[in-house]
Structures are given as structure tokens and as C-alpha cells.
């Protein structure tokens, strides 16, 4: 059985597109309240892993289990797998098989939130509206599935006020409050990246998947983002899975690192062990294993 604190278990994940094997028999785990980085050269299959976890792709093979609440719920994993159901929800926790769920249910029920490599905000809506859309499902219930809302029931007004307060709190924390009423498409690039994280956080996720959150940021912005991510990890005991090319981010904030190359996991562990792994260095520097020592010497490692 999995360790007590595991949030996500990816087992034997394989994804084929026609003849192309994008991910091959990948297994790893994400611990609660940790930041796990998924790294690898371009085309290694990192974003495909994200798309499988968040339900945008149906994996060819493998199991992706997500858990929240009491650790004993993990014991139901094999029974759940055999039952053919998508998940179980108990008073003390819940367990979901993400590969069986469509994308919107992964977000709504399993509470996995994500950001995108090429930012996907709602550019014509204001920053605030972006955050209200993120709270759609909660507000939908509060508006009596629109019916009470159209009739103007006060219960919905109260729910909307609460949603606005939540949005305001997050904007303040991420330094976006002054831009709340501006269209999201008007924000500078770095602010758009942050807003995407804020929007994901407004869904109250158990697992947050960030696809290259630091891409295109300058070193100062990147450092700020590091602090923000560490902050939300600690305050909300949130688990974060992130894809990143910027090694200063990866080494600076991640608790563990999984390295992919050509869809195969070549290493995982703490940043320190991965940094010294021969295979990882070879994959990044693109040399044969036996030449690694020579290259290392040349670059001064």
C-alpha cells in the first residue's frame, strides 16, 4: 500500500498516439504538502502526463489515483479499481481514479486544478470575473442552478459576496488587487502567469498542476513566484506538481523531482540526488553515458 501521505499515485502510465509512444510505463507519487517537479528535455512527454492527470487525454494504459482526507481510504483502491467506478467519497475522505474521469469532473470532484504552458485566461473578462468563473460550481449551487438567481433570492447575493471576498483575498496575496477590474488580457505577461495560478487556487484544489509557471518571467518575478508557491504549499497543505525548465525554480522549491526522457522516467528523488544522477546529466547534455565524466569535467561540475 502507498505511504500514508500520498496524494497522487501514477502507476504504469502509458500514452500512445498512433505509433508514437509519448509516455511509457511511468510511475511516481506525489506526497501531501510537497512540491514535485516534473522535468525533462523538450518533447519528453511532460505536458502529456499533465493532460492525462487532468483528464484532457485518456491514457492508453495505467492507473492514476488521487486521494484526499484520511489515509485509510487508500485501502479501498483495489476494490475501487475492480468496481469500475470513477471514485468513492466517504465522510473521512475520497479516492478517485482520474483516468476514468472526464476533464471537468477531474477539476470539480477530484479537485485537481491546472495552469497551461501557453496561458489560457479569459482575456476579454476582468481579472475578478476570471476568479468568479473559477468558483462556478459552488456559485451554481448557490444560485439554485440559475433559477433562484434570476428571481433575485438573497441567498445567492450572499454567496456571491463570499466569492468576491475570496477572490479579493487571493488577489491581494498575489499583488493583483489593483488590477482587479482590468481585462485579464491587458495584464503584463508575468501578472497573467500569476493570475492563472490564482484562478486555479480559487477552485480550492487538492493538487495543483502548474505547466511552466516561470516561463517568460524575469529572475525577480521568478523568485517572487517561488515564494508565493512555497507560501500556498505551507498554508493550505497543498500538493503541487510542476513542469519547469528553469532549474533555479526546480532546485529552489521542489521537495522531489521526477525526470522524464522520451516518455520514460530516468530518475526521481530529492533535487540533490537528481542533480548528480549520471543519466539525467546525459539526457540534458545529450551525450552518451560513457562520455558523461568528460563533459562534467569540461563544464566544471
Amino acid at each position: 500500500m502507498a505511504a500514508d501521505d500520498t496524494v497522487l499515485r501514477v502507476e504504469h502510465l502509458t500514452m500512445r498516439f498512433g505509433g508514437l509512444v509519448a509516455i511509457n510505463d511511468l510511475s511516481f507519487e506525489v506526497e501531501r504538502g510537497t512540491i514535485t517537479a516534473l522535468i525533462g528535455p523538450n518533447g519528453a512527454g511532460k505536458t502529456t502526463v499533465f493532460n492525462c492527470i487532468t483528464g484532457f487525454y485518456k491514457p492508453t494504459e495505467g492507473r492514476i489515483a488521487l486521494h484526499r482526507g484520511d489515509a485509510t481510504v487508500w485501502h479501498a483502491l483495489d476494490a475501487l479499481t475492480d468496481s469500475g467506478k470513477r471514485g468513492i467519497v466517504r465522510p473521512d475522505g475520497a479516492l478517485f481514479l482520474l483516468e476514468r474521469m472526464p476533464d471537468h469532473l477531474v477539476a470539480q470532484q477530484a479537485r485537481v486544478a491546472r495552469t497551461f504552458q501557453n496561458i489560457r485566461l479569459f482575456p476579454g473578462m476582468t481579472v475578478l470575473e476570471n476568479l468568479l468563473v473559477a468558483q462556478h460550481n459552488a456559485l451554481m449551487v448557490a444560485s439554485g442552478y440559475t433559477l433562484l438567481g434570476v428571481l433575485g433570492f438573497p441567498s445567492y447575493a450572499a454567496a456571491e459576496r463570499a466569492a468576491l471576498d475570496k477572490a479579493r483575498g487571493w488577489l491581494d496575496r498575489f499583488g493583483l488587487l489593483a488590477r482587479a477590474d482590468d481585462p485579464a488580457g491587458d495584464l503584463p505577461y508575468g501578472a497573467q502567469r500569476r493570475l492563472e495560478v490564482v484562478r486555479a487556487m480559487c477552485t480550492e484544489p487538492v493538487l495543483l498542476c502548474l505547466d511552466e509557471p516561470a516561463a517568460g518571467l524575469n529572475p525577480r518575478e521568478s523568485a517572487e513566484l517561488n515564494d508565493l508557491l512555497l507560501g500556498i504549499r505551507d498554508d493550505h497543505s497543498l500538493s503541487i506538481l510542476l513542469i519547469e525548465h528553469d532549474m533555479s525554480v526546480v532546485m529552489g522549491i521542489s521537495d522531489s523531482v521526477v525526470v522524464l526522457d522520451y516518455g520514460v522516467k530516468i530518475a526521481d528523488g530529492t533535487p540533490e540526488t537528481v542533480r548528480n544522477d549520471q543519466k539525467v546529466i546525459a539526457a540534458y547534455l545529450g551525450v552518451a553515458d560513457e562520455d558523461v565524466a568528460k563533459v562534467e569535467a569540461a563544464v566544471g561540475l
Binding site: 487532468t54 484532457f56 476533464d103 471537468h104 469532473l105 477531474v106 477539476a107 470539480q108 486544478a113 491546472r114 497551461f116 489560457r120 485566461l121 479569459f122 482575456p123 476579454g124 473578462m125 470575473e129 468568479l132 468563473v133 473559477a134 468558483q135 462556478h136 460550481n137 456559485l139 451554481m140 444560485s143 440559475t146 438567481g149 434570476v150 433575485g152 445567492y156 484562478r199 486555479a200 477552485t203
Partner: peptide, 29 residues
Amino acid sequence: VRLRRLPIGRAWEALREDEIACRSLGINT
């Protein structure tokens, strides 16, 4: 006008802006 200020109206507009982002936020498109 009323619907535009309700979650369903915002979801419609969000759908127009970016359908994939909607799905990632748990909206049943």
C-alpha cells in the same frame, strides 16, 4: 441581463473566451 451576472452567464462568456480553460476549472461545457 440578469443571467449575465449569474454563474451561468459568466460560464457562457468564459466558454466563448476559452473552452479548454473552462473545462480545467470544472465547468461542464
